[in-house]
Simulated scan of single mutants.
Amino acid sequence: MPPLPTSHPALQSLRALLCGFAQIFLQQHPGCGLLVLLAILIGAPDLLTGALLGGLTSMLIARRRGYPPADIAIGLYGYNGILLGLLLSLKLPWTPLLPLLIITSAALSSLLLAPWMRCMRKHGWLPAFTFPFVLLGWLLLTLVAQLELPLATPASAPGAPELNALQLMLVVLRGLGQVIFLDSPLAGLCLLIGLRLADSRTALWALVGSSSGSALALFYGWPSDGALAGLYGYNATLAAIVLAQAYRCPLVPAVGILLALLLQPGFSALGLPALTMPFILACWLVKASARSWQQAMKSNASS
Rank of each mutant, 00 (worst) to 15 (best):
L197F: 07
A39R: 07
I257E: 05
A227V: 12
S58C: 13
I241Y: 03
V208Q: 02
W293F: 09
L141E: 14
G266D: 06
L139W: 03
A160S: 12
Y77E: 08
P68M: 01
F267Q: 05
R63A: 06
P265V: 01
R174G: 04
K298S: 15
A203R: 05
L97T: 03
L204Y: 12
P223G: 08
L262G: 04
P2T: 12
N164E: 09
P253V: 04
A288P: 02
S210V: 05
L147M: 11
L176N: 11
N164G: 15
M297S: 13
P2R: 10
S58W: 00
G271Q: 04
N164F: 09
P93K: 10
S299L: 12
L151D: 03
I257K: 13
G50S: 09
L126G: 01
G230C: 04
L192M: 06
L151N: 02
G271P: 08
F25E: 09
M297R: 11
L84H: 00
Y79S: 06
I102L: 10
F131T: 15
K91R: 14
I82N: 06
L4M: 13
R248V: 04
I193Y: 08
L182Q: 15
G159I: 00
S211P: 01
A206E: 08
I42T: 02
Y67I: 03
P3Y: 06
L37W: 01
L231I: 07
I280G: 07
L92P: 04
F25L: 09
S268V: 07
I42Y: 05
L97Q: 09
Q178Y: 08
L48R: 05
Q23N: 00
A187C: 12
A39G: 01
L56K: 03
E148C: 13
L52A: 09
T276P: 07
P30V: 03
P93Y: 08
A44G: 11
G31L: 14
G188V: 07
D199H: 14
L218K: 04
S58Q: 15
G78R: 10
F129N: 00
A62R: 01
C283K: 04
H29P: 00
C249V: 03
A254D: 03
Q178E: 15
R121C: 09
P68A: 14
L216C: 02
L17T: 09
S214P: 02
A39F: 05
I257Q: 10
L112S: 02
A155C: 05
I72V: 15
P115I: 07
